[in-house]
């Protein structure tokens, strides 16, 4: 394999399970602008494994029938146990692209107390995603003042 532990490579790589990984891959390209960098397809035409890039980030995706524990939100009443967040350069343009592709928008872009503008969205199988852009870089004090009574610690 190519070196995926080099300094430029993403070190945290979320993997998502889909009932229909072929449709998911096409949709993530069209709606969210991910670029496929690896795709493995079996004799039956079904994608076994794929990897997609966005900026310096990477996700993996595949099917859900290769063990008894993976599932897709679509198969379990829409429940999610985690979500993927992506930081983008132009969140309004990203939102427009996703909406035009028919994405199920959970919350339109909105400024947050920590200085980012984010929107929330479900993909066609119900995976929950958030996309954000930093609009203002705030100090911890500024964030605390703008927050609903939260204490803010750390380097941001």
């Amino acid at each position: 394999m190519a070196d995926k532990t080099g300094s430029a490579a993403a070190q945290v790589v979320p993997a998502l399970f889909y009932q229909d990984p072929n449709a998911a891959l096409d949709w993530l390209e069209k709606a969210f602008g991910f670029e496929t960098c690896l795709r493995l397809t079996g004799d039956d035409g079904v994608i076994q494994h794929a990897e997609m890039e966005y900026g310096n980030g990477r996700i993996m995706l595949g099917g859900m029938n290769w063990a008894d524990w993976p599932s897709s939100p679509k198969a379990i009443g829409g429940k999610n146990t985690q979500c993927v967040h992506v930081q983008v350069k132009d969140v309004m343009a990203h939102f427009k692209r996703a909406k035009e592709a028919g994405a199920n928008i959970a919350a339109e872009p909105e400024d947050q107390f920590y200085g980012d503008k984010i929107y929330r969205v479900f993909d066609p199988e119900g995976h929950f995603w958030t996309f954000g852009q930093t609009m203002r870089v705030l100090s911890n004090d500024e964030m605390e003042k703008a927050s609903p009574g939260l204490k803010v610690e750390g380097k941001g």
């Binding site: 670029e35 496929t36 960098c37 690896l38 795709r39 397809t41 004799d43």
Partner: peptide, 9 residues
């Protein structure tokens, strides 16, 4: 269908 691999850079 055909078994295939795809790589993009």
């Amino acid at each position: 269908m055909s078994a295939n691999v795809m790589v993009g850079i």
